[in-house]
């Protein structure tokens, strides 16, 4: 099918709109001037300043810790929840359970953050890395659960029955058959949870204490007052990491795809 000029224009303008702001950001991160909007010359000095800024490095470390812990925990809990929702036929409070899985997806972050903060104060839990991890786990497990359950729904239940039939205990059937098959969904669930945690400003701001500042909180307080060249550099680094990650992921999945298609060919 050939595209009409109208469609070509829509795509060009659409993707320009999506990508130009970030491209400009990347370009101006190499600007020498402190006045971000005036180009005076190429320089990488803001990267140097960023990397020698201990506060930013500390925040990055906290963010990474929180993201790794919360996304791993969220993946375990979210997968369990998806399994319970799709496979667990009927149990008391099922409606409440599925409501609690879907509600955090549409709940404004300010409310999730506020309510968790009030809980942590109520039970006297010191706010810091632990409370952010708990908060992030709670909302990202719901995303994981949605991703995993959409895979489980299309999963042929007779595969599990076949495993039982061939002598597996229920746990072995899950470990040897179900888990390998839903693994791609579990991995994307983890990645989603990880990104959500890296990204989150609002919930982290509510649930953190003075001991733990995450990168988004740091960025937010820096940019509230206006554009800053260090933040441009930091943004560029973050965009680079994501782009690299997406490229690697797509290469891996392409290679797996190729191997799948030709895997059995060697033998005959």
């Amino acid at each position: 099918m050939r595209l009409s000029w109208f469609n070509i224009t829509s795509l060009t303008l659409g993707f320009a709109f999506l990508y130009l702001p970030m491209i400009i950001l990347v370009i101006y991160s190499f600007n020498e001037s402190r006045l971000v909007t005036v180009w005076t010359g190429f320089s990488t000095k803001w990267y140097g300043e960023l990397l020698s800024n201990q506060a930013f490095l500390d925040a990055a470390w906290v963010t990474l810790k929180v993201a790794v812990f919360s996304s791993t925990l969220a993946t375990v809990l979210g997968t369990l929840a998806a399994y319970a929702l799709v496979r667990g036929a009927r149990f008391p409070g099922r409606t409440l359970f599925s409501g609690m899985i879907y509600a955090p997806l549409v709940m404004p972050e300010v409310i999730t953050g506020l309510s968790l903060l009030l809980l942590f104060i109520g039970i006297g839990l010191d706010r810091g890395v632990l409370t952010i991890v708990l908060a992030h786990t709670t909302f990202s497990m719901c995303y994981v659960s949605v991703v995993v359950s959409s895979r489980l729904v299309s999963f042929d239940q007779s595969l599990e029955e076949a495993a039982l039939d061939l002598g597996c205990s229920p746990w072995d059937a899950f470990r040897l058959v179900t888990l390998p098959i839903i693994a791609p969904a579990v991995v994307s669930g983890w990645l989603l949870a990880f990104t959500l945690s890296l990204d989150d400003l609002v919930i982290a701001s509510f649930t953190t204490g003075p001991s733990a500042t995450t990168l988004p909180i740091k960025i937010f307080s820096a940019v509230r007052l206006g554009v800053s060249p260090e933040i441009n550099a930091l943004s560029t680094l973050m965009i680079a990491v994501v782009t690299l990650g997406v490229i690697i992921a797509s290469l891996i999945s392409k290679r797996n795809f190729v191997r799948e298609q030709h895997g059995g060919e060697g033998r005959h």
């Binding site: 993707f15 999506l18 990508y19 702001p21 970030m22 400009i24 950001l25 101006y28 971000v36 909007t37 990104t195 890296l198 990204d199 400003l201 988004p216 960025i219 937010f220 940019v223 206006g226 554009v227 933040i231 441009n232 943004s235 973050m238 965009i239 994501v242 782009t243 990650g245 997406v246 797509s250």
Partner: peptide
């Protein structure tokens, strides 16, 4: 992929990128 890709980059940074454009 081009439509989904921005979703994986930080929301905060995407909002921030407009501050320099619109000021």
């Amino acid at each position: 992929m081009l439509v989904i890709l921005p979703f994986w980059t930080s929301f905060l940074i995407r909002v921030y990128s407009w501050m320099g454009i619109l000021s």
